[in-house]
Amino acid sequence: MTRSMTAYARRETKQAWGSLVWELRSVNHRYLEPQLRLPEAFRETEPALREIIRKHLSRGKVECFLRYDLVVNQESELSINEPLAKNIAKACRQIERLFPNVTPVAPLSVLEWPGVLQQQEIDLTSIHQTALAEFEQAVVSLNETRSREGLELKQFILKRLTQIEQEVSSVRAMMPALIKIQREKIVQRLEEAKVEIDSNRLEQELVLMAQKADVDEEMDRLATHITEVRRVLDVKEAVGRRLDFLMQELNREANTLASKSINADTTQCAVNLKVFIEQMREQVQNIE
Rank of each mutant, 00 (worst) to 15 (best):
S4K: 00
M5N: 00
A7V: 03
A7R: 00
A7D: 02
R10H: 05
R11L: 02
R11H: 06
T13G: 11
Q15L: 12
W17K: 03
G18P: 02
V21F: 03
E23P: 03
R25W: 00
S26Q: 01
N28C: 00
Y31R: 10
P39M: 02
A41K: 06
A41T: 12
F42M: 13
F42R: 10
R43F: 04
E51T: 04
I52S: 02
L57A: 00
G60Y: 00
G60V: 00
G60K: 00
K61E: 02
K61R: 14
K61S: 09
C64I: 04
L66E: 01
Y68V: 11
L70V: 13
Q74N: 14
Q74T: 15
E75V: 10
N81Q: 14
P83W: 01
L84Y: 06
I88Q: 07
K90E: 15
A91N: 14
L98H: 11
A106T: 09
L117M: 10
L117D: 01
Q118E: 08
Q120V: 04
D123N: 11
T125I: 08
T130H: 04
A133V: 02
A133C: 04
A138G: 10
V139M: 01
N143E: 08
E144L: 07
T145M: 14
S147I: 05
S147H: 05
G150T: 01
G150K: 00
F156Q: 03
Q163H: 15
E165K: 14
Q166Y: 10
E167P: 05
S170K: 15
A173F: 07
A173H: 12
M175Q: 13
K180P: 05
K180R: 13
K185H: 11
V187A: 07
R189I: 08
L190V: 14
V195P: 08
D198W: 04
S199C: 01
L202A: 02
Q204D: 10
E205L: 09
L206S: 08
L208N: 07
T227C: 06
R231K: 14
V232M: 09
D234F: 09
V235F: 06
K236C: 05
E237A: 07
E237N: 03
V239H: 04
G240C: 09
R242W: 06
L243C: 09
A254H: 05
S259L: 09
K260H: 04
T267Y: 04
Q268M: 14
K274D: 03
E278P: 07
Q279P: 05
Q283R: 02
N286A: 03
I287T: 05
